[in-house]
Write a protein that binds this DNA or RNA. Structure first.
Lengths: 134, 134
DNA sequence: TTATAAGTGATAATCATTCTCGTTTATGAT
DNA sequence: ATCATAAACGAGAATGATTATCACTTATAA
């Protein structure tokens, strides 16, 4: 992969904005700095960066992919009620990391190498769950 | 929700074909029985049936949604290597159901009501994992 | 039987993403 | 340094899944 100003800009935007943006959002942000940049370039580079493991793609939301510049493996949560997408808090991250270990150890041989952190957790968030039966 | 021949046909197709088909596939299948049926009708009814809890939507694959007429809560697996999408075997289903219990009991209060079975497990399947490091 | 609201089908529209292709640019070798 | 070349770019067209529109049909309850 060769150096390019555009790719660097896109990567920086993702590193500096921990908000799981869409390609569209990144495109607009990139234009502010580099008005001539094209949409295709943004999509092309997002794909390349995902491929290279520099960023992460979050699919399965509502048809629009989102991206995450956070290097560390971590878990995402989508609230089915309010629709919010967010990183779990550290405590939950640790909790799930431990579970993942257990799953790796005890899961039947049928499916090997399940990676929970590539999945999107779906449920009901704290705010939305007040008074709601579980 | 009112009775309609079209909706019934679509539901039957899903019940009789445990293959996680796309809307397109269901449309083609439906035409064989009812040549005049329209695409919009298929999408409209798939949405309605998901909404009504009669069927399940599987998102986050490769941009195309898939549908599942299986009533029972169960887990799906997508192999990142061969791309196959399938129901886990009964043994794995049970294993994951137990884990889900554990998660419900021990998960921090931040996110309540996480439903593992609405997620798509991603990893490497048995066939693809032969000789591959985990 | 009839009123009416839900469902249908054809087709146009939407919208995220990819493709094409002629031009530009980073980079390794001379 | 400059050159060759393959990678990357930008504009705009194309794709493809899904949804919206709207006039017409049909299930259902009074």
């Amino acid at each position: 992969m060769r150096y390019s100003k555009q790719r660097n800009l896109i990567l920086n935007i993702l590193r500096e904005n921990p908000v799981h943006p869409t390609a569209e959002w990144i495109f607009e942000k990139a234009r502010e700095e580099m008005p001539g940049i094209g949409v295709a370039t943004v999509y092309r580079n997002l794909n390349a960066l995902v491929e290279a493991g520099e960023i992460e793609r979050i699919s399965g939301l509502d048809g629009v992919d989102r991206f995450d510049g956070n290097h560390m493996p971590h878990y995402h949560m989508k609230c089915n009620t309010c629709g919010r997408l967010y990183d779990l808090e550290p405590e939950s991250q640790e909790s799930l990391a431990r579970m993942e270990e257990v799953i790796r150890e005890t899961f039947p041989t049928e499916a090997v190498g399940i990676k929970l952190n590539t999945m999107l957790l779906k449920g009901t968030c704290k705010q939305c769950s007040c008074g709601e039966p579980m």
